[in-house]
Design a protein around this nucleic acid. Structure first.
Lengths: 348, 348
DNA sequence: CCGGAGTGATAATTCGCATTATCAACGGTT
DNA sequence: AACCGTTGATAATGCGAATTATCACTCCGG
């Protein structure tokens, strides 16, 4: 009658071994010291009793008694495991899983969060966030208010992707798009190009601003880049490019670049002979007429691993020492030169 | 670390609302009855105090007190989120995520389980299984002892994939490979075939036995199927097929079928003209010379959804009534006729 | 032979929450 | 005025493991 059938507790073990529950706990945790002394004979007796039963420590009780629960939360603003989102989330989740394995942590996915307008709500009536020791946040765009609230509530978390739009000091791990853009721009200049157009959706995110800043930086150099914010209608693009006498088009991401290529192709332009193309973003899995796109390769797995490492650090560091930790980290990524950024004039 | 800075407990809420911890608990759980009476005014006061704080019930404490957590465990014997395993796990995980959303549950991935010989261990010194209300088990092949132990410990769980190899009554949701095989065999007969070979690894799993049984059933019909267990070396296959005068080869899975096709192709056989090919397994994503393989399409998402529904049912049903629940469920899948099973003689 | 040091182990308490048993105050009846 | 049911709330307890405070006993030196 000691609880549910099939449930073996320390008390039960203690009864069998003829000792107290305290002793069992001590043996299990290998405690020893001036105040705690258990002779090997007794230790053995307890160990045997444990091995002959199916005893497993109840994690809930351990947790309640004040041990770390070793659960890391994973919050995604959209469903993360759909075939469509796998493209973006897949490598990240893979990195997270591996990092969690390394840290000996379990992962809690907050699939219970209510969905509003296609996005999950982080904070709501019964937020379960605090089930975890800390949380990783994933998503193309996250809610600034959420981030601020997390900061003020001193809940350990790390955002994946650069997040410094708010005043609050948001811990994140992201990619240094600025540096990558610089390299790609330099490469284009090297290939003889002098004028380019940067096609972008006019979104206001830190990474978008990073790219724009890098584009603006190019001003003083050999390659002049004209930014061009566009909507869904790209029909004005050929004219714009002709007007700017551009021989290169940079696009904010690979999808946009594909749209651009479509429009330019229809306008009769030779691609990439007359106009080179490159995306200022991940290009894996994208091609233009069989040619691998020029753009970036981002170490998504590494980002995830770094994010979890940072999270773990925040969790194990008392809040008053958080100043000691570098909480905003940029990783360096890699430029994928690809085959759509070619020498001016069309030669490879 | 228990003394987390921002930890809000019921006691704290009680202090703010000027009531007792008991009352807070009652309000939170909407308890009411002849013995428990709390006027709406008090209820409101408590609710406001809760909303103004960041209170979240401690799942460990809830569990210890004998309640549900709305946490469903997900255990995979291998890493589930690697690019390679995505092929198999992806659709399942997608289904699980969606089902969990529907049930309002969070998902706990047991990434902390120690890995031995490439496989995760379910039971170990600090099994955290019991943090979840119940658990879904995924994996091509799982440990029979694990399953038995879960049964005897009366921990709610559901295996994905048929598992009736053990004596214990293991709850599972699987695919009826027998019925699918019957259909495919009938189709081959319809196409004029009279002799076939079934190539399989000699593994002993329930689904493997299902297929073999179906193959044996074919004996009495118009299509005679000869089973052939093979290892890594398939070089004897062309001779075997010639000897049996077979015009169809069934293979245990799509990968094996591809290997078979390679060997037969090298032997100069016209595929599928001379010999038709079909896999008794999922063929999505596999092709033979641009032709979609003949075989099965399995409703993996649906399996996952069904598994979670069953799990939820087991959790909410007291153990003594488990007899009431249909705990072993087979889903029907779909035959993919494809283009590699063609009429005898080569005509489509 | 008394007191301190050392040994081996346990009772008591804590964690946060749910539940059971209990209680004080009030209002109406006889 | 004594009695009793109702209302509103709380003290006490349990869950399983970890930790702290204690205790009983032996051994040894002075």
């Amino acid at each position: 009658m000691t609880g549910k059938p099939g449930k073996v507790t320390q008390r039960e073990i203690a009864r069998i071994a003829g000792v107290s529950q305290t002793t069992v706990s001590m043996v299990l945790n290998d405690r020893d010291g001036s105040n705690i002394r258990i002779p090997d004979a007794t230790r053995e007796r307890v160990r045997r009793a444990i091995e002959q039963s199916t005893y497993v420590a109840d994690p809930a009780a351990r947790r309640l008694a004040g041990l770390d629960n070793k659960i890391l939360g994973v919050f995604t603003y959209e469903s993360a495991l759909t075939p469509e989102s796998m493209d973006f989330y897949g490598p990240l989740l893979n990195g997270i899983e591996r990092a969690a394995e390394g840290l000996g942590c379990d992962l809690l996915f907050f699939t219970s969060s209510p969905v509003e307008e296609g996005r999950r709500r982080l904070f709501h009536r019964n937020t379960r966030l605090r089930l975890a020791d800390g949380c990783v946040l994933l998503g193309q765009q996250m809610d600034g208010d959420d981030l601020e609230r997390l900061v003020t509530e001193q809940f350990p978390f790390v955002a994946v992707g650069r997040r410094d739009e708010t005043d609050a000091h948001v811990p994140y791990v992201g990619i240094d798009y600025g540096a990558l853009t610089d390299v790609l721009v330099a490469r284009a200049a090297e290939l003889g190009h002098e004028r380019a157009v940067y096609v972008h959706r006019d979104r206001d995110s830190p990474t978008a601003r990073d790219r724009l800043a890098a584009v603006a930086r190019a001003e003083g150099g050999p390659l002049h880049v004209t930014p061009a914010a566009v909507g869904d209608d790209l029909s004005g693009l050929p004219g714009l490019i002709a007007g700017a006498a551009a021989t290169v088009v940079f696009a904010e991401d690979a999808f946009l670049l594909e749209d651009v290529a479509l429009v330019l192709g229809e306008a009769g332009l030779d691609l990439p002979g007359a106009v080179s193309l490159a995306a200022l973003a991940e290009v894996r899995g994208h091609r233009l007429n069989e040619r691998p796109l020029s753009g970036f390769h981002l170490p998504r797995q590494q980002i995830a691993a770094e994010a979890l490492a940072l999270l773990q650090q925040l969790i194990s560091t008392p809040p008053e020492e958080h100043g000691t930790v570098a909480t905003q980290r940029l990783l360096q990524g890699e430029v994928a030169f690809g085959d759509t950024l070619v020498a001016r004039g069309g030669a490879r």
